[in-house]
Simulated scan of single mutants.
Amino acid sequence: MPLSSLFTSVYSKEYEINFTQCLPSGCLKYTELCNLLQLTAATHADLGGISFSDMQEFNQAWVLSRMRVEITALPQWRDVVTVKTWINTLENSRSIRALEMYVNGNKIAGCETFWAVFNTEKRRPELLNLPHDHFELFPDRKATAEAFSKIDINPEKEEVFEKTVILSDLDIVNHVNNVKYLEWCMDLVDEKIILNQEIKSFEMNFMRELSLRDKVVIHENVSDESIVFSITKEDKNCYALQLNLV
C-alpha cells in the first residue's frame, strides 16, 4: 500500500470504551488495554506502509518480543481514550515503539514495546524488506519511566495450570496472539488484585511462538511486590509475565 496522506510520525487515535471491554468494576480490562495499544500500533504501521498486508508480499510480519506497561489508572466504561504512538528506533529487523493512553488530556498509561521482523514461512527473524526512512524516529521520547528488561523466572515456581492451544488463541500470523498469553495468566490472578487496580505495571517477554494444539504449562511465583508467571512447552520457556503490585 502506498504511503497514506494521513501518515504522521506521531499518530493519535481515539476509542470509546464499550461494556464488552470492561471488568465488573466498570474499568477497562488489562487485556483490552493491550488490545487497544496493539490496534493503534497496527494502524500507524498501515498508514506508514509497513503493515501486515504490505509485509506479506515478502512473507514477513511484525511480532512482539517484549512489552512493558505502566498504569496510573484504568479508563472506565464510556470514557473516550486517546492513544498516541511513535517509534523510538527502527533498524534492520528490530524496532522499539512507544505508546501512551490519555483520558481528558491526562496520561493514564505508558507502554514500551520491542518488535522483530519475522518470516511467516521460514518462522524466523530477518531484515525488513520495506522502505521506512519516512518515519521520523524519537529515541529520547520515552513513554515509560523504566525500560523493559529480562524477567527473572524463579526455579521455585509452582505449576498452576495446563492448557492446549485452540483455534481462538491464534492470530493472523498463525501463532498465539500476545494478548492471549496475558489473558491466560490474568485468569489465574486473585480477582481482588485486578478489581482493586493493584497492578501498577506489568512486563511481558515472548521467547518462543506457540501453535495450534501445543500443550503448555503455566507456572507462578508470588512475592509481596510481584507475581511472575511463565509458560513452558516441553519444559522450555515460551513466555514470561511479571505483574508489579502497588
Rank of each mutant, 00 (worst) to 15 (best):
S201V: 04
L74V: 08
L39P: 06
D190K: 09
Y181I: 02
L241F: 03
Q76H: 14
D140M: 14
G26I: 02
K29N: 10
P2I: 10
F58E: 11
D133C: 08
V217N: 01
D224F: 10
N88I: 07
W86S: 06
S223N: 09
S5A: 13
N237D: 14
S149T: 15
V179Y: 01
H134D: 09
N104G: 11
F58Y: 15
T232D: 11
E112S: 15
N205W: 05
E91C: 11
C111A: 12
V222R: 13
D187T: 08
C34F: 14
V217A: 05
R123T: 05
F206K: 02
P125M: 03
V160H: 04
C111D: 02
V165G: 01
S201G: 05
L36H: 13
S12T: 11
R141F: 09
K122N: 08
I96A: 07
K180I: 10
T72K: 15
I71N: 04
V165L: 03
I227E: 00
V228I: 09
M204N: 08
Y181L: 07
I153Y: 03
A143H: 04
L243S: 02
G48I: 03
H134N: 06
E100R: 08
F7Q: 07
D54Y: 06
S51V: 04
K13N: 09
K200Y: 09
I193D: 04
D235T: 10
P24C: 01
P75D: 09
H132Q: 12
N18Y: 14
N92R: 15
V69M: 13
V165H: 01
N177L: 04
D133S: 14
E16T: 15
Q76V: 09
G48C: 07
S168G: 06
R78Y: 13
A143Y: 07
A147I: 04
L182F: 07
L47C: 05
E203W: 02
A145T: 13
E112T: 10
L37Q: 01
E158Q: 09
E220I: 02
G26Q: 05
L74D: 08
C238D: 02
A98F: 02
P139D: 12
A41K: 11
E156F: 06
N196S: 14
L3M: 10
T82A: 01
Q197A: 09
I17Y: 04
I71Q: 07
E183I: 01
H219Q: 08
P24W: 02
L195S: 04
N221A: 06
I194M: 03
T20Q: 13
E159Y: 00
Q56T: 13
A73K: 15
F161C: 06
L127K: 15
N237W: 11
I193Q: 01
T232N: 09
F52L: 15
I153W: 04
V103A: 03
E136K: 15
V83T: 04
L37K: 03
W184A: 00
D235Q: 14
L6M: 14
L3A: 05
K192A: 13
E220F: 00
E121Q: 15
V165D: 03
T85P: 00
E70P: 03
S5R: 11
H134I: 08
E146S: 12
E14W: 11
E32P: 02
N205L: 05
S5H: 13
K215S: 10
T82S: 07
L90T: 02
Y30A: 00
S25L: 01
T72H: 14
I71S: 06
